[in-house]
Amino acid sequence: MLEARLEQANLLKKVVDAIKDLVQDCNFDCNDSGIALQAMDNSHVALVSMMLKSESFSPFRCDRNIALGINLTSLTKVLRAAQNEDILTLKAEDAPDVVNLVFESAESDRISEYDIKLMDIDQEHLGIPETEYAATISMPSAEFQRICRDLMALSESVSIECSKEGVKFACQGDIGSGSVTLRSHTNVDKPEMNVEIDLTEPVSLTFSLKYLVGFCKASSLSGQVKLCLSNEVPLLVEYALANNSYLRFYLAPKIGD
């Protein structure tokens, strides 16, 4: 059986909120290392990969592999009943029909309990190879969100060019063009404001801004976002969570002119 207790419901609320517009029905794969999710959007352009390590829960118990097929719209409805600060416990039997969610308020003696019916989801699983990326950029997640939103006002696509001069986000649209260039930057007092560019070779790739703006819904999960690029492979956008847990998005590039 599964029993996983989160100190704050907020974490799961934010994760589900960040991915629910991209993917609808997902298997939450539970085993003794934690709870993982991998799902592609309908157009097979973007992929979500979430890992909530067992260390992110206290306690965490999962005796055998359990796949919880959950509709994220249903999960969102139930999670809306949880206060951000509530303790959240997920429970399921070994061959479950439902997943049980319990929300406990630390301040009052209120305990809420919900069951969500599970679905049989036959999901295609993609193997994501370990990749040595040509460029890795760490930057404030709010900055990345702002750049994507600003450029989306002009164009559907953004080119991300990384060279030793810095990283340039550029777009061209009907009304004109725009670009934002960032250079490496260290803020000793506020490390969350750092921009770090790790480059082994120059990279230039084009991506759909619609998807990037969608990924940025995860910005509240982490002060920093990591972008990993290599020529002609999908972009990795990673929001690191506590205890080595993470929320990752992969986005296939636009190719050719």
């Binding site: 097979h44 352009v45 992929l47 295609e124 193997g127």
Partner: peptide, 14 residues
């Protein structure tokens, strides 16, 4: 204009 590629072009189903 550039064409949108799909993930299967890069990642194999397992």
């Amino acid at each position: 204009t550039a064409q949108q590629s799909r993930l299967e072009g890069f990642f194999r189903p397992v």
